[in-house]
Simulated assay, not measured.
Amino acid sequence: MSSQTRFIKSIVAASKAEAPELPWARGARRAAFIAKRNGVLLKKVA
């Protein structure tokens, strides 16, 4: 199997395995970073 065929097969397998995280679905850590950057205070939960 050539390296290009192996590469293509790995790309196809990775695309079927999981969908990449979208920027707006990354959770509390990202929301806190964006709020800090925008100068907004967030209420801590936990």
Rank of each mutant, 00 (worst) to 15 (best):
E21A: 13
E21K: 09
P23Q: 01
A46P: 03
F7V: 01
P20A: 11
V45E: 14
A14R: 12
F7Y: 09
R6I: 07
E21T: 08
F33E: 15
V40F: 09
Q4H: 07
R29M: 03
K43I: 02
A13S: 14
A28P: 01
G39T: 02
L41K: 15
F7D: 06
P20T: 02
G39H: 00
A32I: 04
I11Q: 12
T5Q: 14
K36C: 03
S2H: 05
R37M: 10
E18L: 08
R6Q: 12
A25P: 02
A46C: 04
F33P: 00
R30S: 11
K9P: 02
L42S: 05
A14M: 09
N38T: 04
S2I: 01
S10G: 01
K36A: 10
K9E: 10
L22I: 01
S2T: 12
V12H: 06
K44A: 09
K9A: 13
K43Y: 03
P20M: 08
R29K: 14
L41F: 06
I34L: 14
A25L: 10
S3K: 09
A25D: 11
P23H: 06
A32L: 11
G39L: 00
W24D: 11
G39I: 01
L22P: 01
I34Y: 05
K44E: 10
L22E: 12
T5D: 13
I11V: 15
P20E: 10
N38Q: 13
W24F: 11
F7G: 01
F7M: 06
A17Y: 08
N38K: 15
V40T: 07
S10E: 11
A32D: 10
L41H: 05
S3I: 05
P20S: 09
L41T: 13
R6S: 07
K36T: 02
A13H: 06
M1V: 13
I34K: 07
K44I: 00
K36I: 00
A28M: 02
L41Q: 13
R37N: 10
A17S: 12
A25N: 12
S3R: 10
G27Y: 04
K9Q: 13
P23F: 05
K36Y: 02
W24G: 06
A35S: 13
R37A: 14
M1Q: 09
A13E: 15
L22C: 04
V12I: 14
K16I: 03
K44R: 10
E18Q: 11
N38W: 07
A28C: 00
A32W: 05
R6D: 06
G39Q: 00
V12S: 06
N38L: 15
S15T: 11
A31I: 08
V12R: 10
W24E: 12
E21S: 10
T5C: 02
A28K: 00
K44M: 04
A17E: 09
M1L: 13
S3A: 09
F7C: 02
Q4G: 04
L41R: 15
G39R: 02
P20K: 12
Q4Y: 04
P23V: 05
S10C: 02
I8H: 07
T5N: 11
L41E: 15
R30F: 08
N38E: 15
A19H: 07
Q4N: 11
L41I: 08
